[in-house]
Structures are given as structure tokens and as C-alpha cells.
Write a protein that binds this DNA or RNA. Structure first.
Lengths: 148, 148
DNA sequence: AGTAAATAGTTTGATATCAAATCAAATGGG
DNA sequence: CCCATTTGATTTGATATCAAACTATTTACT
């Protein structure tokens, strides 16, 4: 009975832990960005910039897919990044429906900062986690992800 | 080089996986609630109701802490639940700053539905996950959580 | 007893987000 | 060629969310 209760609570706790870890990660990242003088930007903006580090120019649809946010959300997010001077928007010449987003010089300057923050975050995240535990974690999470 | 690249991608993938799993869980829960005719309610409302299943009456501050949302958010969330007839609000007689939130009969009727949804979700979540894997997962996630 | 400080909850303002509706452009079929 | 359909992005409307400011009440200190 008691052990059954604990078992139930523990299985539910994993989902709660996942939510809480994600919150902590996000909070950490926003705080670190603040420390580097990057304000007014949340993790979603960061995701866009990060995607642009990997590929110099993306369509709005690319971004929407990459960061898994609605197209209309991406419009607002990107427009803010334009206002802050981190990215530009440009229509394709052939197909004028398509808008390309690219980093400005100012936006590109964020790369080392983002990489540093990312490293710090990962170091903290994986502190005291062995290679075996990482592999196990990845393995199980992949299975869970594919359950839905 | 290549293996190093993969290693980096994999460590980052865990965080991405965590986000994606959480999205899937939330989406599943909202969809299931819809199937049971429960609309206009998101997971945060559900968290409040869930907390009230466990304790018949909570203060706004209790709720804020329980679901880890800002007090002002809780005000809006609870007010909506009041409007939908699931909960009531009542001021404490001794200390009139304190507002107690309790389930209505209508709200209490949600219990079997919520439990059924919860069970379905957990069954799916843990499909093909062994007891050992669960324990391992819980163990590692707890460590990660305490790293921040 | 009086007052400053702390507390519980709400109001207000701003923002990220989703989804439907809309607009403009491109595609495909008759 | 014409028009219905599809596509890419934006606009619009609604909502959840955070945080600062605010209101009312309670506590703690002198």
C-alpha cells in the first residue's frame, strides 16, 4: 500500500521533474543573457538566433519548424529581433511570398556569448552525471518521446 | 571530430527532448480533456484542480506554490475556474486577506475523469519503459534538478 | 497606542503564444 | 488561358504569464 503509493508518486514525479528542469534551464539562460547585457530577449528569440548560427539564412517557415512555434508567433518574435537590430528580413525575388531572415553584424556578435552561455549551462546540467548516465538518459527519453 | 560533434549534439539533444516531451504531454492532456467535454481549460487550470483533489481547500498562495505560477497568474486562472463553475473563492473570517479556493460539486465530478486521463497518459508515457529504466531516469533527473 | 513593515491577493501593463482569418502570390487542372 | 486551390506570411483576437504597482489587512516594534 505504502510502497504502491510511493510508486505512483514517483512515476508522476518524473513528469513534474521534467517541467521543473525545463523551467530552471530557461531561467538560467535568460539570467545569463542578462549578465551579458542581452535584455528583452527570451529563450524563443534565442532559439531563432541559434538556428541562424547554424544556417545563415532561414525562411519564416524554417524557423517555425525549427523552434516548434506557430508561424504567427515567429512573425512577432522575428519582428522584435529586427527592432533590436539582431536580424533582417528580406523577400525572395523569385517567390515574393517567401521571407528570408538573416543575422546582422550585431546579431552575429552574439555567437561567442551564446556559445559561452550554452557551455556553462551544459556543464551545470551534466555536473556529476556520468557518461553512462547520459547515454541511459538519452536512450530512455528517446523511447518516451516516441511513445506519443 | 565526427564523434565529438555527435557527442555535443547528443548532450544538447537531451534538453531539446525534455522540452519536446513536455509539449507532447501537455498536448495529450488538453486533447484528452477535450474528449471528455472539458474545454476552455489548459494544463495550468488542471494543475489547480488536481491540487484541490489532494487537499479540499487551498489559499491562493498555496496554489501559486503548488503549480509554480505567479500569484497574479493564479488570480486569473482561478477566476476562470470560478466562472466555469469548478471552484469557489471564500475569504477567511479571521484573516480577511486570505482567500480559500475549493472545488464545487461540478469541480469534484472531474476527479474520475482526471484520474482516467492521468492513467492513460502515464501508461503511454511509460510504455516499453522497464522498472529499472524508470528508476534510473528518476535518479538522473533528480541529480540534474539539483544541479541548478 | 501608534506606526512602519510585512503579507495576501488583486490590478495593471507588457509580452509570448496559439489559432483562425486574411492577404498576396504561386501552382495545378480543365 | 482561366480559375480554384494551395502556399507563405501576416493580421487579428484571445489567453496565459510574469512582474511591478497597488489595496487592504495583519504583524511587529517602539
Amino acid at each position: 500500500m505504502t510502497s504502491n503509493y510511493n510508486s505512483i508518486m514517483e512515476t508522476r514525479d518524473i513528469i513534474s521533474l521534467i517541467s521543473k528542469i525545463r523551467e530552471k534551464v530557461n531561467r538560467f539562460i535568460v539570467a545569463e543573457m542578462g549578465k551579458h547585457g542581452i535584455d528583452g530577449i527570451g529563450t524563443s528569440h534565442g532559439d531563432i538566433i541559434y538556428a541562424l548560427f547554424k544556417k545563415p539564412r532561414l525562411t519564416m517557415a524554417d524557423i517555425s519548424k525549427s523552434i516548434r512555434k506557430d508561424k504567427s508567433t515567429v512573425t512577432a518574435l522575428v519582428d522584435k529581433l529586427v527592432r533590436l537590430g539582431y536580424v533582417t528580413k528580406e523577400r525572395d525575388r523569385e517567390d515574393t511570398r517567401i521571407v528570408y531572415v538573416a543575422l546582422t553584424d550585431k546579431g552575429s556578435e552574439l555567437k561567442p556569448i551564446f556559445e559561452s552561455i550554452s557551455k556553462e549551462m551544459l556543464d551545470l546540467f551534466y555536473l556529476n552525471i556520468s557518461e553512462k548516465e547520459k547515454e541511459e538518459l538519452l536512450h530512455v527519453l528517446k523511447k518516451i518521446y516516441s511513445n506519443f
